[in-house]
Nucleic acid binder design. Structure first.
Length: 498
RNA sequence: GAGCCGCUAGCUCAGGGGUAGAGCAUCUGACUUUUAAUCAGAGGGUCGAGGGUUCAAAUCCCUCGCGGCUCACCA
């Protein structure tokens, strides 16, 4: 307490009150407090009753929460306490609680945790309240909360001190409760379909399954560098090879990339694999999964994202990537053409491409630059170029493309799926092609994983696989403009030490 | 990585060369059904950090830090 000269007047005042409480023999950081009701239970049971009915019943309740507002009027006062479920008003009268307790009530601060006992009643204004007879301080707050009316708006502080955001901005709490419900509903859905939830390593010696730069870490005892996983894919496929026919994992993956409204370095990915299925099964599953979850948590398939009305009702649009490009730009990329001809088409149509891009990469650039943003209603784009799909089966009718789809909603990718490549000879060639890309300077091209190839050589059943970025789905269903709004603790650069 | 914007009291924000402001919050006093309670009074600031220009800088200039948005990069 020698630093007290540095404290602001508000911090000093609260520490002074702490001392007063301790002088009175009250423990300002108490222990167990048994509640008979939370605020929701009180509201659910009694808000429909009239003043008279409540007076007659004289319901006794014991509840607790954080003090959020205080309106004192001489020898009586009102206060609002907040628990996880909401708020309830307290009415504290000196002649009900006694001089000593009222003195404590007078000096209690907004932010303190209190436990109260009393009877439920309604005020003249009709507000359900507790007429307090016993008042306990459960934990003292030593810092003032943000403005009761304006809340906490400073975006930086909201992310850095999420607990404050959660205390004073109720809609933030709602978003994260909804997030939890969505994830649980997805689990329930998959469990019902006999998918087995598994956990696989997040620290790997070869980071595979996606095109992304990994984080590197070091294991001291083994003296080896390890990578944080960028995808779950290759381990789940090993389990398919091992005989698990339907598996999924909902887990964190890490990509060493920039941070913006759609990217956080760590994010949550759902991946699932189903033996004997192919692209069409996975497409049907994806649609049904998202529709079921949306209906269950929102009660409707009509949503709004960023001002756009979106209808998720089943029967989503399905279109080949090349046809989608043709529709959007009039450019026909179906005819056989050389890489050079493809690049020429790109240049002629204002699509930025690198000098050495092959046909497939050009198709992808066309799609990303001209089509992606326009896909507001749910749309399955299928038939991605083989070059950008090293883990997917080839389209048997056109070897330039793969048996792959991505789902787009509100201009963003929501899912990625394919008929998994199960031919180890083809897989080796794809990896080698990736290694060539890597040597050519693409540091996100995939690294050959010999252990995975060996596993596949033992025989992998035909398999359909799916990946869904959970954070992006939560953004969509909560109409959140930034991924940071659906991550409790988004990555922030540390402040400099003063 | 580039451009633009922001950083002033615990919170929300004004102020853009001449004594640092308001509302809420805090403190003191009044008030026994209020609810953004009300009324009277008081205290509270390294104006993100550092440098420069100037008689004088929160304000103008430079560098840096953190954040936001847009773009680029990136499944």
């Amino acid at each position: 307490m020698s630093q007290e000269v540095d404290l602001t007047n508000q911090l000093e005042a609260r520490r002074e009150k702490l001392r007063v409480l301790m002088d009175k023999g009250i423990n300002p950081f108490g222990g167990r407090f048994v509640r008979t009701h939370d605020t929701k239970k009180i509201r659910d049971l009694y808000s429909a009753m009239t003043e008279e009915e409540l007076e007659e019943k004289a319901v006794h309740v014991v509840t607790a929460g954080r003090l959020m507002a205080k309106r004192r009027k001489g020898k009586a006062g009102f206060a609002d306490i907040q628990d996880f479920e909401g708020r309830i008003q307290l009415y504290v009268r000196k002649d009900n609680v006694g001089d000593e307790t009222y003195e404590i009530f007078k000096h209690i601060d907004i932010g303190d945790f209190v436990g109260v006992e009393g009877t439920v009643f309604k005020t003249r204004m009709g507000e359900l309240s507790i007429r307090v007879v016993k008042f306990n301080i459960l934990s003292k707050s030593l810092r003032p909360l943000p403005d009761k009316f304006h809340g906490l708006k400073d975006v930086e502080q909201r992310y850095r001190q999420r607990y404050l955001d959660l205390i004073v901005n109720p809609e933030v709490r709602k978003t994260f409760v909804l997030r939890s419900k969505i994830v649980k509903t997805i689990r329930d859905y998959l469990d019902d379909q006999q998918y087995l939830e598994v956990e696989t390593p997040t620290m790997q010696s070869i980071p595979g399954g996606a095109a992304a730069r990994p984080f590197i870490t070091h294991h001291n005892a083994l003296n080896i560098d390890l990578y944080l996983r960028i995808a779950i894919e290759l381990h789940l496929k090993r389990l398919i090879i091992g005989g698990f026919e339907k598996v999924y994992e909902i887990g964190r993956v890490y990509r060493n990339e920039g941070v913006d409204t759609k990217h956080n370095p760590e994010f949550t990915l759902l991946e699932l694999y189903a033996a004997y299925d192919d692209l069409r099964d996975i497409m049907a599953l994806t649609e049904d999964l998202i529709v079921s979850v949306t209906r269950k948590v929102l009660g409707t398939t009509q949503i709004t994202y960023d001002g756009n009305p979106i209808d998720l009702k089943p029967g989503w649009h399905r279109i080949h990537m090349v046809d989608a490009i043709k529709e959007a730009t009039g450019v026909d990329l179906w005819p056989e053409m050389t890489d050079e001809q493809a690049r020429k088409l790109a240049e002629d149509n204002g699509v930025r491409v690198d000098a050495n891009m092959s046909y497939g990469h050009v198709v992808n650039e066309f799609f990303e630059q001209k089509v992606e943003d326009t896909l507001i209603q749910p749309t399955f784009i299928f038939g991605h170029p083989i070059e950008i799909s090293p883990l997917a089966k080839k389209d048997p009718h056109d070897q330039r493309f793969s048996d792959r789809f991505e789902l787009y909603i509100a201009g963003g990718e929501q899912a990625n799926a394919f008929s998994e490549l199960n031919d180890p000879i083809d897989q080796r060639e794809r990896f080698e092609e990736q290694m060539r890309e890597r040597e050519a300077g693409n540091d996100e091209a995939q690294v050959i994983d010999e252990d995975f190839l060996e596993a596949m050589e033992y025989g992998m059943p035909p398999t359909g696989g799916l990946g869904i970025g959970i954070d992006r789905l939560i953004m969509l269903l909560t109409d959140s403009p930034s991924i940071r709004d659906v991550l409790l603790f988004p990555l922030m650069k540390p402040h400099e030490e003063k």
